[in-house]
Design a protein around this nucleic acid. Structure first.
Lengths: 157, 157
DNA sequence: GTGGATGCAAAAAGTTTGCAGGCGT
DNA sequence: ACGCCTGCAAACTTTTTGCATCCAC
């Protein structure tokens, strides 16, 4: 965690950018949650967490910093549809994974399979494409909601 | 193509909805292109194609119909990032595939691999998740842009 | 004729940008 | 002190919605 701040500072330095309190707070906040969070929710969280202090953070700065963090590879965004815009998650200390999105409860589950990654890489390469990243989102119903679904279906007849 | 219109009509009927000229035109337009198109571009295209006729179509109707078509499984949307909103593509007569997005030229390439589909399905099921659909987007550099990249890199260095 | 569908324009939601002043280096 | 960074508010983009009118059935 401290290491990440160091890395961020280095990243900024190499770009001739400055480490400000706002940027630090945003980095911390997004690394403090292990959820997939929207820019707006992150802003709200920062308002709560930082409310007691004199530190003020505007939405604009949140967006600007999020973009910066994405460039630096500290976070990545995903869009799970439903028109709520981008969700962000931190990358460091949280290796690559794919997502299963439950369409009933909107919860997001992560999974990872090395064999799948290898096969994907092989196929893409076969097409002459040089992959730098990928995003696999599976939509459906999670185990919990499948059970709930059955019981409510039974109630309906 | 005629068959698709029939299917759409049936779909509307089962929902107690009506087949209007606007809906027909939008369906045709999205099945006429084999590209991934945004709502706005589709709107523009409709304005051109239908400009000579008396048929008027508003953006609102485009969005409403796109949503209807997605519900009916006639089209599907994807978001390739870059904040240009959703892109749509037709589904019928155009079986499931994944996407490779070239970050240089922004072109989208489609591919499909049965083995990959099977493996994905197996893994997801293993997690107790019931998948209804999935979206795999691979980001990177297409073959053409790799070549271009090399030559421009050579120029710079 | 009736109720769903449309166009228009305003509203929403998410994100970006211009500018004057603040602050990290 | 320099000039990057920030907050603010306005602008922008994409999509949704309210309402009076229109038209498919």
């Amino acid at each position: 965690m401290k290491g990440i701040e160091k890395l961020f500072e280095q990243f900024l330095r190499t770009r001739g950018l400055r480490l400000t309190k706002q940027r630090e707070a945003i980095l911390k906040a997004i690394y403090a949650t292990h959820d997939h969070i929207s820019a707006d929710d992150l802003y709200d969280e920062l308002m709560d967490d930082e409310g007691w202090s004199a530190l003020k953070i505007s939405r604009a700065t949140v967006y600007r910093t999020l973009s910066l963090l994405t460039d630096g590879g500290f976070i990545q965004s995903l869009d799970i549809g439903g028109g709520q815009g981008q969700l962000y998650e931190h990358v460091l200390g949280h290796e690559h994974h794919d997502h299963m999105v439950c369409l009933v409860c909107r919860q997001i589950f992560e999974f990872h399979d090395e064999g799948l990654e290898d096969l994907q890489a092989k196929i893409v390469k076969k097409h002459g494409f040089k992959a730098s990243s990928h995003r696999l989102n599976v939509f459906g119903t999670c185990a919990k909601c499948q059970v709930k679904g059955e019981s409510s279906a039974a109630m309906q007849g």
